[in-house]
Structures are given as C-alpha cells and as structure tokens.
Amino acid sequence: MLGAGLALSTPALAATPSITVTADQALRFGSFFTDTSGTRTVSATGTVTGSAIVPLTGSAPGPAQFTFTYDRGINANVNYSLLIAVLVPGTASQISGGVTGTIASFNTDLPGVSALLPGQIAQITLTGCQSRICSRTFRVGGTLQVARTSGGAELAIPIPIVVTVLAEL
C-alpha cells in the first residue's frame, strides 16, 4: 500500500506525454452527377447540400471521423484542458480522367471552430480531461467542387490532418 503511494509521488517515473490521431472514417460525398461543374457539401453534422448536381443512389454521404488521443504520461485524477492546433496542410484535390475534384474548405464539430481552411491553423481548447488518457472524437465535413469535361470518376482524395498539443492547461 505504501509502495503505491510512493510511486505516485515520484515525478521521475512519469512517462513522456504523447499524442496520436487516427482516421476512423472517410469523408463520404456519395454518388452524384454533374454536367460540367457542381459542388456538394457534407457538414460535420451530416447535413448534405449541393449545387448543380443530381444526387444518385449509392453509398450514403457522411462526415469523416478522427480520434485524437492524448496520453498525459502521469496518473493523476485532476481536471485539465488541452490547447491544440489542428491543421489541414493543403488543398485536397484529385484529377481522374475528365473529372477534377477539389476540397477547398472543411468544417468540423470541434468546439469553437466551424471552418478549417487548408494551410491555416485552428486553435481549439479541449476541456474536461480528467485522467491520464484524454481522447476526443471529432468529425470533419467539407465542400467538394467538381469540374467535369468527360466521363465519370471514383475520387479518393487524401486528407492529412495534423494535430499539435500547444499546452496543457
């Protein structure tokens, strides 16, 4: 019993804090037709809107889902918050045959941030962390702009997400 108490009081035994981010689900824009150009927006909450497109049957549209996990490295039952920075490094786009798809803007349900612009850092405070491991699942939507000159295409556009812990508060 005493050993347990001593371990908790020895900072030298604490592990180095670490973070991980996992991509749990893809951002799905579904199947649609557009004559020459159109856009489809899938919000972080799942709302789907479009312009100059005809939605067609196929896989259901939905936002991407990511999970951020922070391992504080210290077993302590305290409340703390995390100040993090989220970055989508650049514009996500793909050309496939006569179809070009570009995601110029993203949106998210992370607290206090509605839009994620490629190349711009968004700072978010995650509150309510209580244990050594603090994990948050968040969703990311976006607007896909499609330009079509011929044929169709199955687009699979990489979306890199970088999360940095700026401070533990």
Partner: peptide
C-alpha cells in the same frame, strides 16, 4: 508534440 493522420474523402461522379 504533433501527430498526424491520413484521412480520405470519397466521391463517385457518375
């Protein structure tokens, strides 16, 4: 520290 994940956006243009 930073961590990154590579997500993906999918669409089928008919």
């Amino acid at each position: 520290q930073s961590a990154s994940a590579l997500g993906q956006a999918e669409a089928v243009i008919i």
